[in-house]
Design a protein around this nucleic acid. Structure first.
Lengths: 166, 166, 166, 166
DNA sequence: TTTT
DNA sequence: TTTT
């Protein structure tokens, strides 16, 4: 059935990149998507949407898209549930990204900063690849398992290899 | 910023139609959207996505789209939070529908009305509205307030008139 | 870059299913998508959108979705051009479908027709798979070549194997 | 029926802003949307998609989004036809934008570079609106008429007031 | 007739 | 707490 999402927003923090026991990369992050209308007090609010992305794209995103970066995302809405420490069922709704596009890196936003960038860790000197988009090779689109997303998961270790479809 | 959702799925129950103190109609319902891939056990799972719809469309939907109905929805993802009875902050992610389309009503699905149907020729009971779509008159698109969605709200009365933008 | 389309509409005719020299299936069809507003004369018009679909899905669609069928489609907009018989450049804009979903077959619309259906050619007795969706196996998403779409192509034979990416 | 488009791409030229006889603003432009895959020769191609936008947003876009600007657009696909000078029917497929978002202006792209730029600190000329999005006030969404789009129209004057719904 |  |  049709389940189609497109978002453009800014990353509220650097993505969290993790690896499943079978060594699949997963990145999670939150996108702040500003609303196109104002609230009663005349302020423009935002929706804070949790996003999961897998495999090569998880690594690409974690490498290139840092806190504050403006990115575009296409994907689908996923719901799941788990039992928390207090034994209560928790329901989660998040976006599983199928592709992302870096629209503006933080370094780009802050100005080109010159050649003598001191922090190589999050420098985005490139710019040449600016506006390009990453998309998983088609054959890598997984049949996502129930435990696919580690967001809000009480314990990352509860993603066992057996739950993973690849 | 871009925040765009399209869903096709089945209503898990009849919609809940309510009215705010200022008499605005709001309907909430859950859409079961079947996934296009199977899980590890070879089963086709579904995402259960909460949807809110306002005003005239809320009433149209509550009238025409019942439990089991196949509908299409366009809208956006909204996030909000509230404090529950135990004083814990609860985060909610849901879809605010801007338009919906009845794709298959229950009566249509069930065929021409059971055993004693006499007119097989134009058997589509309730079918006059079939395939039509409802969209709020443009001027009625509200500037949604923070409390716009009553889903999971501990108390419907916490939608006060002051929180509503229309 | 983001290029995302979702349509729900009715097939104006049966799809045309063809095979490229390298034996890739391609189906083309036109979707009539009714507008959600009326024109000046108070009539509800439609957009007639050309769609191309490839490989296994082309065959599935050609088999199951006939003239009049209500279907959902996700994909992207593609533009291309060719020179017609008069040597003029013709510009084409169409949708390349990545997945489709049968929402209502013609036989379903016309009533269930009974078990003794006489015309096996376009019978859709099933219904059990109704509302299911077909999606190409991930690895089959091709790198589409310039000549990918045969719509309005002056000569189907001008899709040579060399132009095809798979 | 559902007819939903989201695009991110670059303007191939400045938009053409025109006014109908009844003084409605209409802007037309072409978006180059780069594909996320390569063709047979290993080159990344683009789709060149014609877009129409109306009223206040037409003026905003023509003001702020110039040739080369990276913009996001949401809207729908529209088809129409007209007879050209040679009396042949011409079929047109284009996108009618409902909202747009400036993702990167040309001045931003070029960096503080400008020769005579005096304030490198907040070097983003015109950048105050960066990342913001424009959306027509809801009440201004028109019931589009058949002749709504002037693209490829042999004569702009054939958009008569009588054809316009507002 | 095309953008970076 | 889930639809076909």
């Amino acid at each position: 059935m049709i389940n189609n999402v497109v978002l453009v927003g800014r990353m509220t923090r650097d993505a969290e990149l993790r690896y499943t026991p079978s060594n699949q990369a997963v990145a999670t992050f939150t996108l702040a998507v500003n609303r196109n209308f104002k609230n009663q007090s005349g302020e423009r609010e935002a929706d804070f949407i949790n996003v999961v992305i897998w495999r090569q794209q998880a690594e690409n995103l974690a490498n290139w898209a840092k806190k504050g970066a403006l990115i575009g995302v296409t994907g689908r809405i996923q719901t799941r549930s788990y039992d928390n420490q207090q034994g209560q069922r928790v329901y989660v709704t998040e976006v599983v990204a199928e592709s992302f596009q870096l629209l503006e890196s933080r370094t780009a936003r802050e100005g080109q900063g010159g050649a003598y960038q001191s922090n190589p860790g999050n420098s985005f000197a490139g710019g040449s690849d600016f506006g390009s988009s990453y998309q998983a090779p088609a054959q890598s689109t997984p049949n996502f398992a129930r435990e696919e997303s580690p967001f809000g998961s009480s314990n990352p270790m509860d993603i066992s290899d057996d739950d993973l479809p690849f």
